[in-house]
Amino acid sequence: MSKTNFLKGLWKEHPVLRQLLGMCPTLAVTTTAINGLSMGLAVVFVLFFSSFVVSLIKKVVPHQVRIAVYTVIIATFVTIVDIFLKAQFPQISRALGPYVPLIVVNCIILGRCEAFASKHHMADSLIDALGMGFGFAWGLFLLGSIREILGAGSIMGITIMPQAYNPLIVMILPAGAFLVLGLMVAIMNRIEQK
C-alpha cells in the first residue's frame, strides 16, 4: 500500500509529465541540470513539511478558510527555503531568482495538501509528499539535463559534447523549454500506451 503510494508520484501520476502541474518553475529554471535539481529539491522540502503541518492541523482548521491557511503554511516554508538558499548557496539563489518565492503558488503543493494530506493519515501523507516531490525533482533534472546538453554542450557545468558541436542556443531560451517538455510528454504517453 505505502509502496504504491510512493511510486505513483514517481511514475504513474507524475506531477510534471502526466498531470502537468507546477509548470512555471518546470519551464523557467531548467536552463541547466543543476538549477532544475535545486528547484526540485526545494519543492521536496516545502511539500514534505507543508504536508506534515497540514495533516497535523487538519482537524482544527475550519473548512471555509482551509485554502488560505494552507497557503500561509506553504508561504512560511518557502520563506525558510529562500533565506536558506540566499545564505548558503547565493549562486543558486540568484539563478533561480523570483521562482523560489513562486513556489508558494506551485499547484503541486497546494494540490497535494488539499487532495491528499488533508484527508489521509500523517504517514500516508508524508510518503505521498515524498513521492510527488521526488517525481517533480527527477522531471526537472531530466529536462534541465537535456536542455543543457543540447543548448550548451555540457552537463552539471562539465563539457561533454565534442568541440565540433555547435550548441543549439534556442534550447536554453524559453522556446526550447516548451519544445523539449512537449516532446517529453509525448514520449511518456508512448511508454504508457504499451
Binding site: 502537468l20 516548451f178 519544445l179 517538455l181 512537449g182 516532446l183 510528454v185 504517453n189 508512448r190
Partner: peptide, 13 residues
C-alpha cells in the same frame, strides 16, 4: 501520443 498537452506545449514553443 502528441494529442493534448504535448501538442499545446510544442505550439507554445
Amino acid at each position: 501520443v502528441f494529442k493534448g498537452a504535448s501538442l499545446t506545449l510544442i505550439a507554445a514553443g
